[in-house]
């Protein structure tokens, strides 16, 4: 028997084939580039914010002042505005989006599902500034004239729905953000639901499960990890959205429970004041806001990663 004239292959690295080598190089560079951008961006934001960090310290986070004249700056009201609008938008958007995705994957006939899916995704294609304009011209006035008085008279005992109606404020911002979050969460949820193996659904159907029982017993448990990721991506979108929120929220830092009154968020304050900042310390304070927002987003994403991994492992039965 002739011996093959090839040396035993000892290592899988470096890859010998030119195509593989090129692919490794390009993919590796792209991955490294992404990390580099994130690191440089974080460093830059914190460097810009350093004067404000050293002057105000941690008190910046709970201080309520924002006065360019006296150079007193604080982020509490903006953090409040960000938290309220983002959480309300996610709470409102997730059930809608998940239901829409379930409709598209489990209920709608294929002929209807394709156009509906396209329309839902088109919602994500609307430029946020256009959505914001619609918020100023249509949504805000409608809410102030019809919805907010009604909410106030029926649910006014809840602090969220107390106070005077206003065309600009937290409520229109929540609605706008909901509209922006729905298509993202719906698109990802749909992808997640499509990964549920048909065998599993058949297994449940064959036991006499109804569609709802299949959704509840098989589709949703199987999709828990993916849905969590979808929610976090939606939250990230809501946290970071600046333009449309700036257009409808009223731009007044205020700490109130009412959804009707004007307020402001981290992102919209950065968008509205960076250009017109009058002092170095104001610019540094705005960078400080950016740093807080960045930390929020990173924490949300890392947390989501941990949750997703854990759910995934539980589903596969490895602990």
């Amino acid at each position: 028997m002739a011996r093959l004239p090839l040396p035993a292959r000892r290592r899988s690295w470096p890859v010998r084939h030119p195509g593989d080598l090129a692919m490794h190089g390009i993919a590796g560079l792209a991955a490294a580039g992404t990390i580099l951008v994130l690191v440089l961006l974080t460093v830059q934001v914190f460097r810009q914010a350093r004067p404000a960090i050293s002057r105000f310290g941690a008190a910046f986070v709970w201080s309520t002042d924002w006065n360019p004249v006296t150079n007193a700056f604080g982020a509490r009201d903006l953090i409040w505005g960000t938290a309220v609008t983002s959480l309300a938008a996610v709470l409102a958007a997730v059930p809608l989006a998940v239901a829409a995705a379930l409709f598209l994957t489990e209920l709608a006939p294929a002929r209807a599902a394709a156009p509906i899916r396209t329309l839902v995704e088109l919602l994500a294609a609307i430029p946020s500034v256009v959505l914001g304009l619609w918020g100023i011209l249509v949504l805000g006035p409608v809410l102030a004239q019809h919805v907010e008085p009604w909410l106030g008279s029926t649910l006014g005992f809840i602090p969220l729905f107390s106070g005077a109606p206003s065309p600009a404020g937290l409520l229109p911002a929540c609605v706008i953000l909901t509209i922006m979050v729905v298509p993202i969460v719906a698109a990802i949820s749909r992808e997640v639901f499509l990964t549920v193996p048909a065998d599993l659904k058949d297994g449940a159907y064959a036991l006499g499960a109804t569609r709802w029982e299949v959704v509840r017993g098989v589709v949703l448990p199987h999709s828990a990890a993916g849905l969590t990721a979808a929610v976090i991506l939606g939250l990230g979108r809501a946290l970071g959205e600046a333009i449309a929120v700036t257009q409808v929220i009223g731009g007044t830092a205020a700490f109130h429970a009412s959804l009707f009154g004007p307020a402001d968020t981290l992102a919209s304050r950065i968008a509205s004041q960076y250009q017109g900042a009058v002092s170095d310390i104001q610019i540094a304070s705005i960078a400080f806001l950016a740093a807080i927002l960045l930390v929020f987003s990173l924490v949300a994403n890392v947390g989501a990663g941990l949750v997703v991994g854990r759910l995934q492992r539980r589903r596969l039965g490895v602990r």
Partner: peptide, 10 residues
């Protein structure tokens, strides 16, 4: 019904 591939629920 029992299927071709084992399909226990996770």
């Amino acid at each position: 019904m029992v299927f071709q591939r084992p399909n226990p629920f996770p």
